[in-house]
Simulated assay, not measured.
Amino acid sequence: MTTHRTAPTPSLAEATWFKSSYSTGANNCVEATPLPTGIAVRDSKDTSRTPLRYTTAPWTTFCAGITTGTL
């Protein structure tokens, strides 16, 4: 019998968040922080809300969709 273990979810308590260089001073954007297996994003206006976490593959697909204009 094979036992599958999931990687522990990294704590974001001490994460270094960054905003896009395209962000304006209006503070209506998202912040992001890299994770060992992907990225986490959160609302820059309400950083107390739970961040969304994405693994590398879906995040890469999302970014490619924005870059190519398909999203």
Rank of each mutant, 00 (worst) to 15 (best):
1 M>C: 13
1 M>T: 11
2 T>I: 14
2 T>E: 15
3 T>R: 14
4 H>L: 06
4 H>C: 07
4 H>M: 05
5 R>D: 08
5 R>V: 06
6 T>Y: 09
6 T>K: 10
6 T>A: 15
6 T>Q: 09
7 A>L: 09
7 A>R: 08
7 A>E: 15
8 P>E: 04
8 P>Q: 01
9 T>I: 15
10 P>H: 09
10 P>L: 12
11 S>D: 14
11 S>G: 14
12 L>F: 13
13 A>N: 14
13 A>W: 13
13 A>E: 15
14 E>D: 14
14 E>S: 15
14 E>Q: 14
15 A>N: 12
15 A>G: 04
16 T>W: 12
17 W>P: 11
17 W>T: 12
18 F>H: 14
19 K>F: 03
20 S>N: 10
21 S>G: 10
21 S>V: 12
22 Y>R: 09
22 Y>H: 11
22 Y>T: 01
22 Y>P: 04
22 Y>V: 08
22 Y>S: 12
24 T>C: 07
26 A>K: 11
26 A>T: 11
27 N>L: 13
29 C>F: 10
29 C>G: 11
30 V>P: 06
30 V>E: 07
32 A>S: 09
32 A>N: 02
34 P>A: 04
35 L>T: 00
36 P>G: 11
36 P>N: 13
37 T>E: 06
37 T>W: 05
37 T>S: 11
38 G>P: 04
39 I>M: 01
40 A>K: 00
40 A>L: 01
42 R>Y: 03
42 R>K: 06
43 D>Q: 12
43 D>N: 15
43 D>S: 08
44 S>E: 09
45 K>M: 01
46 D>Y: 13
46 D>V: 10
47 T>V: 04
47 T>N: 07
49 R>E: 04
50 T>E: 12
51 P>H: 03
51 P>D: 06
51 P>N: 01
51 P>S: 05
51 P>V: 08
52 L>R: 01
52 L>V: 04
52 L>F: 08
52 L>T: 04
53 R>F: 03
54 Y>K: 00
56 T>E: 05
57 A>D: 03
57 A>K: 01
58 P>D: 05
59 W>G: 03
59 W>I: 00
59 W>D: 01
61 T>D: 14
62 F>L: 03
63 C>P: 04
64 A>K: 12
66 I>T: 00
66 I>G: 00
67 T>Q: 03
68 T>W: 07
68 T>C: 05
69 G>R: 07
70 T>H: 03
70 T>F: 00
71 L>M: 08
